[in-house]
Amino acid sequence: MATILSSILEAHDGEVLAQWLVALKASGGTGGGRIKEGELQTQCRHFLDALRQALATAKNSDGNIQGAAFEDVRELLADVSRSRAAQGFSPTETASFVFSLKQPLFERLRQELGGDTARIVDESWQATQVLDQLGLYTTEIHQKSREDIVARQQAEIAELSTPVVKLWHGILALPLIGTLDSARTQVVMENLLQSIVDQGAEIAIIDITGVPTVDTLVAQHLLKTIAAARLMGADCIVSGIRPQIAQTMVHLGVELNVVSKASLADAFALALQRTGRTVVRSKLAGTLAART
């Protein structure tokens, strides 16, 4: 196909590389120096090599980059995009890796083809097609990597935010902190039910002191969890419902028909009582014992 392009890259790779690096830095493609000079040069050189080979071997002239000829180029770009995404580059900064190559390349084309305007237009068009696709490809990979990062972080947060703690034999507490969205609530609740089985707990206290808002969906999840716990043979106590939340829930028409206590301490006292225990102040017990 565009053999003129590949021969330019063959004969003038040094100059193109140098000009490209300048253009890359000017267009912010280095992310304000977040990439080391040496690394950038290596990436650029490898890309030019791969591109030259791809252009030389590609058969059709429509510049489709999805073909086998462009496999190395795509792989290289994917690596570049992923590492840039991880380093916090914006999609624009990532894409300019490819787009900044246009200027030096077109400059070269103009010099090579002299006054043959028709051909310059033709070759530039073909080069543009290829580079535009490659540029968009970097954006796509960049986007995907960001999504992967977000998904992983969500999973990590979900894991972090499910601390089921044992208060006493058969008594668990789940102190919920932060805003509850539907997905997180589900993970938290599943975790609680599993802990009930693992520890053989008869009572679970769900403490929502640290929850700023409870919407209808979250309230439903709470109710479902409490119902599920009952089916398994355990009781739940909800503690720490803030006054605003209580008001909102009544206004929303959400009936939280559950055993609830003002504080975790009150809930714990109730849980102890229900499991046949009483809390006695030992000092007092001591003086009483001494008197008798």
């Binding site: 609740m189 039910l193 089985v197 479902k224 969890t225 119902a227 089916l231 398994m232 043979g233």
Partner: peptide, 19 residues
Amino acid sequence: VVGMRPAVAITLVELGLSL
């Protein structure tokens, strides 16, 4: 009824059965 698994309990509630 003894020993219902968590996943079963969650599903049963979703199904609309409260036993």
